[in-house]
């Protein structure tokens, strides 16, 4: 076992367990908040994208394409440096990070939601309206229940991507899992313990998500999650 301790001294890692626990907690918390916010705004963005009014869907499409074609790191920098010049130092790093990630994830959510709604055949709406439902009723009772079962797997896939994306927030000094690894590295200067522990923590979260998405898939059917 000597060679293992030489390369990966788990005794040092035990001293940092509470820091990594806090990091995991923050990563999960940031992801949950961003996920909820981006689904909420994503529904509106998807409806805007499907609107028939030119200026509305064009604005939505421009926003979606701009976010999809630029790196998250640059978007984080733009929000991090841009937000204070617009409204002053109103938000701390943590909140700025959540805002940047939400701005980044919302278009992806909107595209998933749009694909889900559009995957339900038009005849379903027509059928619902033929039996006397209004458009809103048809959406609520007929379209959305069918769309949601198709949404679940891509949503889970996007959640995994979101969890991994939170690591970039460490660059603007948000304390999360990657931040925990960097903190440990700066104190112990032992790269293998710090970074491999970080990777293992991410893998554990990923595997939990993988098992969960397999479970959801068996219960709801649909295509496997692309993570």
């Amino acid at each position: 076992m000597d060679w293992l301790v030489e390369f990966y001294n788990y005794n040092i890692v035990f001293n940092y367990i509470d820091i990594f626990a806090k990091g995991i907690l923050n990563t999960v918390w940031i992801s949950v908040v961003c996920l909820s916010l981006s689904i909420f705004f994503g529904i509106f963005l998807a409806l805007m994208r499907m609107s028939k009014v030119g200026i509305v869907w064009r604005t939505a499409a421009a926003y979606i394409q701009f976010i999809r074609a630029t790196p998250l790191l640059v978007q984080i920098y733009i929000v991090y440096y841009g937000l204070p010049t617009l409204i002053g130092n109103f938000f701390n790093e943590f909140q700025t990070g959540v805002i940047a990630l939400t701005i980044h994830t919302t278009p992806f959510m909107a595209e998933i939601i749009r694909a889900g709604i559009q995957s339900v055949p038009v005849t379903q709406t027509e059928g619902a309206m033929a039996v006397g439902m209004s458009r809103a009723q048809a959406m609520y009772h007929i379209i959305l229940p069918q769309a949601i079962s198709k949404l679940i797997s891509p949503l889970l896939g996007q959640s995994v991507i979101l969890l991994k994306d939170t690591s970039l927030l460490s660059i603007i000094a948000v304390f999360e899992l990657m931040g925990a690894g960097l903190l440990m590295f700066s104190e112990t200067v032992s790269p293998s313990e710090s970074y491999i522990t970080t990777a293992i923590c991410y893998l554990i979260i990923y595997l939990i998500m993988l098992v969960f998405s397999g479970f959801v898939q068996r219960r709801l059917g649909g295509t496997p999650a692309q993570v």
């Binding site: 970039l168 690894g181 991410y202 595997l207």
Partner: peptide
């Protein structure tokens, strides 16, 4: 399962 940032580190 791991972020690219961790892989590069």
């Amino acid at each position: 399962g791991t972020p690219y940032l961790v892989q590069i580190y």
